[in-house]
């Protein structure tokens, strides 16, 4: 069989997530380098097959649709069994996942089932001399490793936001695949999912992040951060550990060594000192802006642009100015 690549295309709430399109784009480039096809596998409740054209539009030659009421939400055991069976029967050269909460859970399960390693959280994937080669930031983004995968299949999870969605349209022939395991037979049961408003951008996907620290003084002042994010229109809200530990924001908003690692086009740090553990999570942002009343705060060492001053005075003015700039576009 040719060097085909399997992608597990993440879907939620009946639609594909942006990371799925990014991973298919990465797989398309890889498959073109290796002379194979891209097969995108999507799990969901009845009707999920309707996303096939979206997957084809970014490069899927074949869309494998696994429909079952039990796949309304991510069902780790049944998804892992089905993906592993597909890889085994399809003889794939590589399988790609998004390094999202789902992909980070799924990829290692597949690795162990197939008895091969996983290159996790890759920021690039290429074919080089017949091998799959990835780059992966480690040691809190302070070191970048190049890794060569010697296994077939080569298993890789791709960092959300690392690849721009492509536009190489393919036929996207649709095939239906049966689950290799009854989703209701799993030992681990999902008993509840509470998703915030689906309109809210995820930190990994947002081109702009406005992040707040203890300089905001109290949870209710986070509205200053939210207002600026809303003015940008394409921004997510982040936080420091000082803030999440105090319960001002959920832990899932924390950026840093022990939180999320992000690399948006623009990162605005509001009342954040710039502790090494915080910088670990955002140093790869393209442009960094910092607002802090202490001119010696370490955040200014990584910021492209800094304003020294009081966040309570500056934020309303900045928010109004961003709104005005956006209105002119």
């Amino acid at each position: 069989m040719a060097d085909n690549i399997l992608v597990v295309a993440e879907a939620r709430g009946g639609d594909v997530r942006k990371v799925a399109l990014e991973v298919i784009t990465a797989a398309r480039v890889l498959a073109d380098g290796m002379g194979g096809d891209v097969h995108a596998m999507v799990f969901g409740a009845a009707g999920i097959g309707s996303v096939a054209p979206k997957l084809a539009a970014v490069g899927a030659d074949v869309v494998l649709v696994v429909e079952h009421a039990g796949f309304e939400t991510y069902n780790a055991e049944a998804v892992a069994a089905t993906v592993a069976a597909q890889i085994t029967s399809g003889g794939y050269r590589a399988a790609l996942f998004g390094a999202s909460a789902m992909g980070q859970d799924l990829a290692p399960r597949i690795g162990a089932k197939l008895r091969v390693g996983v290159a996790a959280d890759a920021v690039s994937v290429i074919a080089e001399a017949g091998n799959v080669v990835v780059r992966h930031p480690m040691n809190t983004n302070k070191v970048i490793a190049t890794m060569v995968l010697s296994s077939t299949p080569a298993l890789v999870s791709v960092r959300p936001g690392a690849v721009s969605v492509g536009s190489t349209a393919k036929a996207g022939t649709v095939q239906s695949v049966a689950p290799a395991m009854d989703p209701s037979a799993g030992r681990v049961k999902v008993t509840g999912v509470s998703l915030g408003s689906s309109a809210k951008l995820d930190l990994a996907e947002a081109p702009v992040i406005v992040s707040g620290g203890r300089g905001l003084k109290a949870a209710e002042h986070f509205s200053l951060v939210e207002d600026l994010a809303a003015a940008f229109g394409n921004a997510a809200v982040g936080a420091t550990r000082a803030v999440t530990d105090d319960g001002w924001r959920p832990h899932s908003d924390q950026i840093g060594q022990t939180g999320r690692q992000v690399s948006p086009n623009l990162y605005v740090a509001v009342g954040i000192s710039g502790a090494i553990q915080h910088i670990a999570g955002m140093r790869n942002s393209k442009t960094i802006v910092a607002i802090n009343k202490d001119k010696d705060a370490p955040i200014f060492k990584v910021a492209d642009y800094g304003i020294v001053g009081d966040v309570f005075e500056i934020m309303p003015v900045l928010t109004a100015a961003v709104k005005a700039a956006k209105a002119q576009q």
Binding site: A101, V190, T191, V193, S194, G196, S198, E205, S252
Partner: peptide
């Protein structure tokens, strides 16, 4: 019983 954070939400799970 466990909770796990997913993008934009929380999953609750139970297991033996």
């Amino acid at each position: 019983t466990a909770e796990r954070q997913v993008e934009g939400g929380v999953e609750t799970l139970s297991f033996p």
